[in-house]
């Protein structure tokens, strides 16, 4: 039990740290949450239901995660904006020696430079973790948005 509690704590801690990293605009630290062979996808409940493979964002290496950050910093044009993530409590779905699966719900508000604040996305993170010396790292995060409709653009990662 205490092992499971430790695991739950490590995952909850990693999830909130991840959200704070994005909300605090520390994107350069974002890749550190992932293992080298990671997968990060953003899709929607409808696309999952239909079994569609394509994603809004599909990064299947830590290099691609880094590239998303450098593209946002140096290449892409979008109005200044920030997110506020609100996370639910993680559910641990599977515990194996080399993989732990969890699910947690999220709400993301988007705050534009003029102060306009909108409910931007709701959904859940389907996470797969690997235990590390410091805690846990993401081998896979599938961001399943409840809606397939994105307002204007999805620049910053969810």
């Amino acid at each position: 039990m205490s092992d499971l509690l430790d695991l739950w704590f490590a995952i909850a801690q990693a999830q909130t740290a991840h959200a704070r990293c994005l909300d605090d605009d520390r994107l350069e630290e974002w890749p550190d949450f992932f293992t080298d062979d990671c997968l990060y996808r953003v899709t929607s409940a409808e696309n999952m239901r239909e079994g569609y493979e394509a994603s809004l964002i599909f990064l299947n290496s830590k290099g691609m995660v880094r590239d998303r950050v450098s593209a946002l910093r140096t290449a892409n044009i979008y109005e200044r904006q920030a997110y506020r993530h609100v996370l639910g409590q993680p559910s641990i779905l599977l515990v194996e020696a080399d993989a732990v699966k969890s699910e947690v719900s999220f709400i993301v508000l988007r705050i534009m430079r003029d102060g306009k604040t909108d409910l931007f996305a709701t959904g859940r993170y389907l996470d797969t973790w690997r235990r590390t010396v410091d805690g846990v790292a993401l081998t896979s995060r599938i961001v399943v948005c409840d809606s397939s409709r994105i307002d204007t653009l999805l620049a910053l990662p969810l």
């Binding site: 979008y78 994105i150 653009l153 620049a155």
Partner: peptide, 27 residues
Amino acid sequence: ERMMRLKQANLVGPAGYISMEDGCVGG
């Protein structure tokens, strides 16, 4: 080939490396 399409989907759509700007420039 399918995997390459999934990867290149990063270029387009609401979050696309190319297309995202087209989503905001009309506004």
